[in-house]
Structure formats: structure tokens, C-alpha cells
Design a protein around this nucleic acid. Structure first.
Length: 533
RNA sequence: GAUUCCGUAGCUCAGCUGGUAGAGCAAUACACUUUUAAUGUAUGGGCCCUGGGUUCGAAUCCCAGCGGGAUCACCA
């Protein structure tokens, strides 16, 4: 403990356990030491810094800001609570900014109002001026008024400490024009301490409110049309429904390996077999792969499956769903993403993957064999290796030369069969499947099929996957025999789709990184430096 | 996993070709009863990410590690 602090403590008559302090001084900053000293002082004055009893509020900051001007009589006896974000102290009166869950509002604290007794001004002079800090959570009572500079504010008549803050909050100042100063932009700080990010950066909070709004908009759409929300296993003994590296865990009582799901597709289809006509699930999926601005090890996919439908119906339904989300969220189908405008008004463009390739490379690859395809890819400077088959070459060609061009919502349809082991063969085109991907802003947002319901065909497709696995493809699918058994009982013709919810949120909230639409994105653990005593 | 940039006070950042650390905000003290990036005066606050190396001397140069960002690869 440093001498200056000791002087401060003595001067203020603040007593504390000296030895305890000494131990903690190894890790605590000066400001943290001072706040702990203030905490002790509050207790000494008989003020509980973390009271248990309820604090009743009857208004929010947003309510006051929106309605006070036209309904002044209603704001004469108000009570609200929040966090102190800034203080402008002026001797015997002070202005402060209080932030509740809805907004920020200025409060006005005058000594002679909160301390009506002429003999005792301690509540203001000591508690408010000395012991309350930025970041503290307080409850106030008072009345709303307008300052002479025209700002709607609360004239405080009573205040109560509800929670003392022991860590200094980064201070972000904002001027009249809304320009902010010393804004905390360090991504590591923001993601590791999201709670602080949410307190000091109001736009971050708004993004996550929008995320929830997107999800409830989808849920309302599906529920209104009679779809049934279901829960299926996250722990699976066979990680099916997609091609990806899974996380492996172990169940002790059963003494068996279990995987965190990479997809829920095969379970939802089992439910279609079981007689539900339309089921959906917001599925948290886990994939043990690389991380970047569009990938997090756990992510959310909305999948839904509708019986007696096909992929054309699914395209129409997808158009209606996206239109509704855009309108629910922004009140319009015309959105600005980055510096581009994107229209979510149906109908969306539909184009086959072969036509897309023709459109952007001038080459018709639809009738080509693998040798011809390789020649085309080589001439277009596409990176290849020997293991890539025809389907993989087409997929790469599309990814390299076409994908980024589809800014407006576009359905890319009719993919090669080899890359789609769960998809029904095309009704007319040999070698293709009834599948589409929805591209928006140059990125894949959804992937859908007419689902394969022929159990014999499905078994053969799985067996092809096993051959790929034996050749060393570590992303080939496992065979799920129980799923095959379910198909053998008969699954109605079904259309299914998966939406990348995180990416959809990035798009609709205009965020460049998946970490900005996940409250707690995956991070490496923090290492704490060992202190040598 | 590869390449590259970054890591200094609670926060945002300076710190040049090596000479033992600075600013603004925040904090502390005093003044101020309608301020608003409040103001004025004074004061304190640093394992300069960690560990090695070079050097008389390292925040600075070199190596390794840890953490983060960006790009690439894998993938949604």
C-alpha cells in the first residue's frame, strides 16, 4: 500500500483492515483500492452497499424522454434506477447521467433538496460527493423538469445506493453532435468483458436486441403458419446431417463416446417420419474447425422441414420469411449493408449453378467431364488438387468466380449429386439434385433441398460417403443406421432448409464479424501472470 | 494451422537512430446551487504482455512464448 493512499484514508477517517489491504495491493490498482476504502466507509456510515430489498421503479428513461413533454403531470413523482455514467459536480448541486436498461437520462441533485435538515448535510457532502462513483448503481425518486438549456432531466429528491461498483468503468464521452471520445474499441477487451462493452457502447446493446428481434420474427412467422418448434439432442452418438469435424466428449455412466451435434437435420426428419408435418428448431451446432470473422465453434442454425413440399415451395416460403424479417426489423424491405443497398422484396432471382458459372466465366460446364472441367479451372487460375472430383471442381469454380457477385438475394439451384448426400435427385436433370443455396451480399445465407426420402438411395449415398472416408476425407458423413431405418418406414416427400442465423444477423445488423453478433464469442482463456511473493 | 500487424496508467494513445516513462479522460484534494466532452488549481497513479539474448545501459534492437486483429487455408 502506498503512503499517499494511507494519507487519503486517514484524512477521510476511512478505516480498513491494513493487512488485508497489503495482500490485495499486489493486484489492485490505485483506483480499485480507493473504491474498496469507500465501500468500507459507506458501511461505517450504516449504508448497506448491496441492499437486499426490492427497489420499486415506476418509469424508464426512455419513457420520460418520449412522453414527458406532452404529459407533464404524469412525471411529478417518479422512481427509477440505473448506473451512473457521468457526473458534473458544482459545489452544492450536481448533474449526473443515469443509464437504465432503456436509455440515459440526466439527473439533477441539489444538496438542500436531498438534505432538508439544515444541521445534517452528510448525505450530499460525504455520500454523494465522496463515496459515489461512476459505475455505481443507484435508485432515485424525484420529478421531471426541463433545464434552462432545454434538456429533460430528473430533479432528485431521494437517492439510494443499490450496488457499489469496485472497478473503474472506461469513460466514453460524447459531445453534442454524438461524436464520442476515447471509445473502447479494443476487440479483445470488448469480447472478453462483454458486460462492459454493453454498458459503455449503446450500439452494441442495440445489435443484440436486434438479434433477438430477428429470431422472434422468424419464430412468429413459423408459428403463425402452424410449424411446431421442437428440441432434439445436442449430444449425439453419431454426428450426422452435415460434413464437418465434430467435438468429441464422453459419457461416464454409459461409458461411451458422444459428439456435440454438427447439425440436427437427421433428427428433424425422423420427426417428419413420425407424422409431424412441419417442424423447426433453432439449433446450436458445434464444429471443431477454424475460427474467423464468419466462423465460431458454436453457432446457430434454424432448420425447418415441411412434409408434402418441394424446393420450389421452399424458395417461395424463404422469400416471404426474409421479407417479413426485414420489415419487422427495419420497417422496409430496402436495406443498406455497408455501402450497398439490398432489396428483400420478393421475388428473388433464381439461377442454376451451371448458368451462374456461364454468366460469370462465359463457360458452359454443364456437359463437361472431369478432364474438361480441370482444363477450364486451370485456364481460370483456380487452385486444384488431385483429390477433387467433378462436383468439388464445380463448387470451387462457383465459389471463386461467382459467389461474391450475388449481392441481391439470389437462389442458386440444382447442384451436382456428389456433394449432396441427403438431397433428392432432380426430377428431370441427370446427375443433379433438387437443392438451392440462398446468396445475399456475396455470402451463403441458407441451404435447402427437396429431401431424399428413398431409403435405398439414401443407403447408397451413405456408402459412397464411407468410401470417401476410407480414401482419407475426414469430412465425409458417418452412416446413421437408425435414420435409415426411419426412412424405411416411409418419409413423405419433404422440403427442408437451414439458415445460418449468425450470418443473417450480421447481414441485417450491418456487422462485419460474427463476434459482433455473438454475446460471448469463443476466446482463448486469459493467462494470469504469476505474482512472486 | 500459415503469413502479417499489434500489446505502455482504469480507458484512449504519445514515447524518433537504445540513456531508467508522458498527455487527455478517469481518480484524489480544494473551489463552484441549471451543467452537459462542465470549469479552475494542485496531487497521486506504471511487472512498458512474459521469458531469454545483445549492450556499460532495453519500453525501444534480436529470439522464443502468451494474447488479440487482419489476410489465407478448412468450413456455415
Amino acid at each position: 500500500m502506498n503512503t499517499k493512499l494511507k494519507v487519503f484514508a486517514v484524512n477521510k477517517g476511512i478505516l480498513f483492515n491494513f493487512e488485508k489491504k497489503l495482500n490485495m495491493s499486489q493486484e489492485l490498482s490505485e483506483q480499485e483500492e480507493i473504491r474498496r476504502a469507500k465501500l468500507a466507509e459507506l458501511k461505517k456510515l450504516g449504508i448497506e452497499p448491496y441492499p437486499a430489498e426490492e427497489f420499486q421503479i415506476n418509469v424508464t428513461a426512455q419513457d420520460i424522454k418520449e412522453n414527458y413533454e406532452r404529459d407533464k403531470l404524469n412525471y411529478k413523482d417518479i422512481s427509477l434506477a440505473g448506473r451512473i455514467m457521468s457526473v458534473r459536480d458544482m459545489g452544492k448541486a450536481a448533474f449526473a447521467v443515469l443509464q437504465d436498461s432503456t436509455d440515459r437520462i440526466q439527473i439533477y441533485v441539489r444538496r438542500d433538496d436531498i438534505c432538508p435538515n439544515e444541521e445534517d448535510k452528510q448525505l450530499y457532502d460525504t455520500v454523494w460527493k465522496k463515496l459515489i462513483d461512476l459505475g455505481d448503481i443507484i435508485g432515485i425518486q424525484g420529478y421531471v423538469f426541463t433545464t434552462k438549456t432545454g434538456e429533460t432531466s430528473i430533479h432528485v429528491t431521494h437517492f439510494k445506493l443499490l450496488a457499489k461498483s469496485l472497478k473503474p468503468l472506461p469513460v466514453v464521452k460524447t459531445d453534442e453532435d454524438g461524436k464520442s471520445f476515447d471509445e473502447v474499441t479494443d476487440p479483445e477487451f470488448r469480447y472478453r468483458q462483454r458486460y462492459v462493452d454493453l454498458i459503455i457502447n449503446p450500439s452494441v446493446k442495440k445489435t443484440f436486441e436486434q438479434r433477438t428481434k430477428i429470431i422472434s420474427s422468424i419464430r412468429n412467422f413459423l408459428n403463425d403458419q402452424g410449424a411446431l418448434e421442437v428440441d432434439t439432442p445436442v449430444l449425439q452418438s453419431i454426428p450426422g446431417g452435415a460434413a464437418a469435424r465434430p467435438f468429441l466428449t464422453h459419457h461416464n455412466a454409459l461409458d461411451m463416446p458422444l459428439y456435440l451435434r454438427i447439425a440436427n437435420e437427421l433428427y428433424l426428419k425422423r420427426l417428419i417420419v413420425g407424422g409431424f408435418d412441419w417442424v423447426y428448431e433453432f439449433s446450436r451446432n458445434f464444429r471443431n474447425e477454424g475460427m474467423d470473422r464468419t466462423h465460431n465453434p458454436e453457432f446457430t442454425v434454424l432448420e425447418f422441414y415441411a412434409a408434402y413440399r418441394d424446393y420450389f415451395w421452399m424458395m417461395n416460403t424463404t422469400e416471404k420469411l426474409l421479407e417479413k424479417i426485414a420489415v419487422d426489423l427495419h420497417g422496409t424491405t430496402e436495406l443498406t449493408v455497408g455501402d450497398r443497398s439490398i432489396s428483400f422484396a420478393p421475388p428473388f432471382k433464381r439461377i442454376t449453378i451451371f448458368d451462374a458459372i456461364k454468366e460469370h466465366t462465359g463457360v458452359d460446364v454443364s456437359k463437361m467431364d472431369e478432364v474438361e472441367l480441370r482444363a477450364v479451372c486451370k485456364s481460370l487460375h483456380i487452385d486444384m488438387d488431385e483429390t477433387m472430383g467433378k462436383a468439388k471442381l464445380i463448387d470451387t469454380l462457383f465459389g471463386e468466380k461467382c459467389e461474391a457477385n450475388y449481392i441481391q438475394p439470389t437462389f442458386i439451384t440444382d447442384y451436382p449429386v456428389e456433394m449432396s448426400p441427403l438431397t433428392k435427385k432432380h426430377r428431370t436433370e441427370e446427375g443433379l439434385v433438387e437443392r438451392f443455396e440462398l446468396m445475399i451480399n456475396g455470402k451463403e445465407i441458407a441451404n435447402a433441398y427437396s429431401e431424399l426420402n428413398d431409403p435405398i438411395d439414401q443407403r447408397e449415398r451413405f456408402e459412397d460417403q464411407v468410401k470417401l472416408m476410407e480414401r482419407g476425407d475426414d469430412e465425409a458423413m458417418f452412416i446413421d443406421y437408425d435414420f435409415l431405418r426411419a426412412l424405411e418406414y416411409g418419409m413423405p416427400p419433404t422440403a427442408g432448409i437451414g439458415f445460418g442465423i449468425d450470418r443473417l444477423c450480421m447481414l441485417l445488423t450491418n456487422q462485419p464479424s460474427i463476434q459482433d453478433v455473438l454475446l460471448f464469442p469463443q476466446m482463448r482463456p486469459e493467462t494470469k501472470h504469476e505474482t512472486v511473493n
